[in-house]
Write a protein that binds this DNA or RNA. Structure first.
Lengths: 163, 163
DNA sequence: CTAGAATAGTTTGAGTACCAACAATTAACG
DNA sequence: CGTTAATTGTTGGTACTCAAACTATTCTAG
């Protein structure tokens, strides 16, 4: 394997080692590798789409989860979004500063916050959701509507099983 | 003051807003959202597995791609790994410092480097590949061997189509 | 009632990512 | 040849991530 080494004289040909399509080797069969590439591609595509809102997929997910679960705590939000709670602190600071999210102290447990959207946050979420739907329709097309449900089930199985 | 300010002592209600399983709302149907969660879970699981080597999935992919394509340039490596070239500079600095990768100047194009593994790099790659295979066998089990090929094809389609 | 454990959120530090701007080198074309 | 354009890798700026250490509060034994 991996022959084609050694000759150093006149590299008149593919000297530059796989200019177009490098070999993936064992990587080609690794689910994790392709998972990462696909996730990054989807992430970038969505980020480009909503660039004007200064929102990226993570922020959108936070906004959507708060909108869907008013009163949720930061810790629970982190679990749902798959992010460490320490990651949410600056993100929420930003969203609160932009008057999209409200942090309300909870009387029964003064350690935690109850998060909710402001009317402005609701409006922005509604608008972003339209873009997100459009983005996901594109993904649907690529995945194929027939396979979508099964594909998402598989992704969820991975998420759940690996913790 | 402000002691008995409210009604305490009735915490049997699910006041804390979705403690166990928050609602996902529209997110539940978004491929990108589940893609991110699954990728992160797989990433973490692999990172835990090879923690002792001070290697993470991205570094492993870089090592594997160089091993598979000796002489590859940093730019081509970045494309293959789905990373910006500027991201690779510090990563390669580290790998060179650890004597796992060699940077060789190319006579025919003195702008670029030809990357290759050192013997030590080859050995580490071989060892890491074993762990990667074990990790991926776990993923195979979750995905189901029957669906693996189709699953990877779908991921590749996403990567290629979105660029 | 009180000491210790557990939990919510914040801070800090290291790592990783992109992009834009840059110097050095090479290619394209008159 | 010489001017201009493109490419390779690096640097600097910003952003996002986790994990560990920390503060404040609540829970739990005893």
């Amino acid at each position: 394997m991996a022959k084609a080494a050694g000759r150093r004289g006149r590299p008149h040909e593919s000297n530059a080692a796989e200019e177009a399509a490098p070999r993936l080797g064992p990587l080609a069969d690794f689910i994790g590798f392709h998972l990462r590439l696909a996730q990054e591609a989807s992430f970038q595509a969505f980020a480009r789409r909503v660039r004007d809102y200064k929102m990226r997929p993570g922020r959108f997910a936070v906004l959507a989860l708060i909108g869907e679960n008013p009163g949720i705590s930061q810790t629970a939000l982190g679990r749902a979004a798959g992010r460490d709670k320490s990651t949410l602190t600056p993100a929420l600071n930003d969203l609160v500063r932009r008057a999209l999210v409200k942090r309300r102290r909870v009387a029964s447990d003064r350690r935690s916050y109850a998060l909710s959207l402001t009317p402005k946050g609701e409006r922005l979420l509604a608008e972003l959701t339209l873009h997100a739907r459009a983005h996901d329709r594109l993904l649907d097309e690529i995945v194929g509507l027939k396979h979508k449900a099964e594909f998402i089930r598989t992704l969820r199985r991975l998420t759940m099983s690996l913790v």
